[in-house]
């Protein structure tokens, strides 16, 4: 079990991480979600021993990182955000090298190299130099190297930033596979979909503070369990607004040019009522989007801001 207790880190007068605590149990896929600058990387850096926290503690199986750095570091596997490989070495040479750096030798090293190549899907490219790899292959090897010493906890800092959709999906699937096979994972991201897809537990960070923490479903409910319904219409909804409001008394209906939106707990019946009300005014929906309760909504609810300013997530 990995226990993070009240980590704090300031840079000058700027508080980068302000009292972050969480627990990761074996087999967990734990997400650290937050916008850019929230303090995710700084938290990860303290957990993996790259930087010293100003205060707070990191414990793995009761051993503190400060007192037993070797014990803890040997059992953590960090996947840095950027490619951290020797470009002119082959995939196999890289794995062997990093294995030795992490104290793996002999037959165990051979076995682990094979396993890592398999996980990364690079067994056929083992003798190829990394510089000749595609971006996606490098990413995969980058992750595999983090696994070379068979860590108990795999720590990944935004591994999908700035890469194409295909590689991203491959990485997400790889991490999910690993987790299903029993690997404990800590995964940071500012994409709520990734965290929803991968993680069973998470913490949401904002301005260095933890604003939500717990099981995925519990955190989702922080949004009040409201779904968002958006409708594109074939006419101007203004005349129908009163009727809509009467049909959906609990919700505030927002109307725009040719579209309406509202938040409801139970979207099914509400959509039916809305369509009926509109039809009385000769307006028909062209398209209906229903957004189920999600982390984005939870973040919005908690901070009044969106997780990300637009984008492709």
């Amino acid at each position: 079990m990995l226990e993070v207790r009240d980590l704090r880190k300031t840079y000058g007068s700027h508080v980068a991480v302000d009292g972050v605590s969480f627990t990761v149990s074996p087999g967990d896929a734990f997400g650290l979600l937050g916008p850019n600058g929230a303090g995710k990387s700084t938290t990860i850096a303290m957990v993996s021993g790259l930087i010293q926290p100003d205060s707070g503690e990191v414990l793995l199986q009761g051993h503190s990182l400060r007192a037993h750095p070797r014990f803890v570091k040997q059992r953590l596997g960090l996947v840095p955000q950027h490619i951290a490989l020797h470009e002119r070495l082959t995939a196999e040479e890289n794995l062997r090298y990093w294995g030795q750096v992490y104290g793996v030798h002999g037959a165990r090293l051979r076995d682990n190299v094979e396993w890592c190549l398999r996980v990364a899907g690079l067994t056929d490219h083992r003798k190829q130099r990394v510089e000749r790899f595609s971006g996606g292959m490098k990413r995969r090897l980058n992750i595999a190297v983090g696994l070379i010493h068979r860590p108990e906890v795999l720590i990944m800092d935004e591994p999908t930033v700035g890469i194409d959709a295909q590689s991203r999906n491959h990485i997400l699937d790889t991490v999910r596979e690993l987790n299903r096979d029993g690997m404990t994972v800590i995964y940071t991201s500012h994409y709520m979909q990734e965290v929803e897809y991968l993680c069973n537990r998470l913490a949401i960070l904002d301005h260095g503070r933890m604003i939500a923490y717990g099981a995925l479903d519990d955190v989702r409910l922080l949004a009040g369990g409201l779904s968002t319904v958006r409708m594109d219409l074939d006419g101007d909804p203004a005349p129908a607004l009163d009727a809509l409001q009467q049909a959906l008394p609990a919700e505030r209906v927002e109307a725009g040019e040719g579209r309406i939106s509202f938040h409801v707990r139970d979207p099914g019946p509400a959509v039916g009522k809305a369509v009926l009300a509109l039809s009385q005014y000769g307006i028909a929906p062209l398209r209906i989007d229903i957004e189920r309760p999600n982390l984005e909504a939870a973040f919005l609810q908690l901070t009044g801001r969106r997780l990300r300013d637009g984008g492709d997530a």
């Binding site: 993996s48 790259l50 750095p69 570091k73 960090l78 840095p80 955000q81 951290a84 750096v101």
Partner: peptide, 13 residues
């Protein structure tokens, strides 16, 4: 300055 160094620093070296 590269992430290679992060990887080394995160290791038991």
């Amino acid at each position: 300055q590269s992430d290679q160094f992060k990887r080394i620093a995160a290791g038991p070296v």
